[in-house]
């Protein structure tokens, strides 16, 4: 739990999110376009980080499903910014050694004739360090 306490503080500092502002209305989750693909949803990221229950999030595929569309940020009535928290948790995983989700070797299989460069650079920025 001590470890989690440190991680919790680090996540809050890097994301700038204050989960105490959350009033548990669930609008973030209501508006999330990636809901169906996510095991843990935006409101759960907020409450689980707040309570220090972070391990399940670190292991969850949900980290890689967030579209960073920022709908939860703009529509949150309390200004909580859940997407920034999701990003902070994801970074804490991919910044660790061996944490890269995507490697250069994967690129050929992703390419098709029309894939814009933007897709690849975005994916690398989101999934790898």
């Amino acid at each position: 739990m001590n470890n989690n306490k440190y991680l919790r503080e680090e996540l809050l500092r890097q994301s700038g999110v204050n989960p105490k502002k959350c009033m548990k209305c669930g609008k973030c989750t209501a508006t999330c376009p990636a809901f169906d693909e996510m095991e843990y949803h935006p409101h759960q990221f907020v409450s689980m980080v707040e309570s220090g229950d972070i391990e399940p999030l670190l292991k969850s595929e949900s980290l890689y499903k967030c579209l960073s569309c920022f709908a939860c940020i703009d529509r949150c009535p309390r200004g909580v910014e859940p997407a920034k928290l999701v990003e902070a948790v994801r970074l804490s995983v991919i910044r660790k050694q061996g944490g890269n989700r995507l490697s250069a070797d994967d690129v050929p299989s992703l390419l098709d004739e029309d894939v814009p460069q933007q897709l690849l650079v975005s994916a690398f920025r989101k999934y790898s360090k």
Binding site: P33, D36, E37, L67, S68, L110, L119, A123, Y127
Partner: peptide, 19 residues
């Protein structure tokens, strides 16, 4: 003003397709 699926089409093509 809703998302097309963005870069997640790399991870989950179906999600991008739905969006």
């Amino acid at each position: 003003n809703e998302c097309c699926g963005g870069y997640v089409s790399v991870e989950s093509p179906d999600l991008a397709k739905n969006k």
